[in-house]
């Protein structure tokens, strides 16, 4: 095919037309996918909250509270059934071995840990990823415990009553730290019955 001659006008016109067509098309797609994208992001959040909290029928995100603990600010989401507080979910994180470990922790109103969901982690496969329930029993140690009388720290450090994942002490420490932070936020947040 013959090459088209280039001069200033046709170069400018071509580039303008191409970019204009592109932005129009993308604007259209953006509008089209806006709703599904928001739905997907919301679903991701609600899924975790539904798992860690007991039954609720309010909108935990609508009642979200931000609590400062040390240098960080944590999001806490109260769950209520017929305006009686059933539990509180706290989003927390701590730096682990490969990066931040992000957890969502469900507490019962008295501060007992109900369930923990790992939202994001970059720990080593086969070692640090044992923080996942599907991979080991490590997270079960926390369920049903109240940090008031259950010291969150790794046993072999002499810091608490948690048995670390073998060969992943750093990960285990980070996990404990994140749970502790969540508990502190819960105490500070003072969420009461309405």
């Amino acid at each position: 095919m013959a090459k088209k001659e280039s001069n200033f006008t046709n170069m400018l016109a071509t580039l303008l037309i191409v970019t204009f067509a592109s932005s129009a098309a993308l604007g259209f797609i953006y509008e089209l996918t806006k709703k599904p994208i928001e739905d997907a992001l919301l679903y991701k959040k609600t899924l975790a909250v539904q798992i860690v909290l007991p039954e609720f029928n309010n909108d935990p995100f609508g009642e979200a509270k931000r609590v400062a603990v040390g240098k960080d600010t944590l999001n806490i989401y109260p769950g209520r059934k017929d305006s009686v507080l059933t539990g509180v979910a706290v989003e927390t994180s701590a730096p682990g071995y490969g990066g931040d470990i992000r957890l969502l922790i469900g507490f019962l109103p008295d501060g007992t840990i109900r369930e923990v969901a790992v939202l994001e982690h970059k720990e080593t496969a086969g070692l640090g990823d044992k923080i996942l329930k599907s991979k080991s029993d490590f997270p079960l140690q926390f369920e049903g415990k109240n940090p008031d009388n259950f010291k969150l720290g790794v046993r072999k450090d002499g810091a608490g009553e948690v048995d670390a994942i073998s060969a992943s002490t750093i990960t285990s420490r980070a996990y404990c730290k994140a749970v502790q932070k969540a508990y502190d936020a819960l105490k500070k947040g003072e969420i009461e019955n309405e």
Partner: peptide, 24 residues
């Protein structure tokens, strides 16, 4: 229809647009 000298930039815009579509 595309002048030779702005060939590559035009192609890049087309490609980048489709990439954005896939991304969304």
């Amino acid at each position: 229809f595309i002048p030779d000298k702005v060939r590559i930039p035009s192609y890049i815009v087309v490609i980048a647009s489709f990439v954005t579509v896939v991304d969304f």
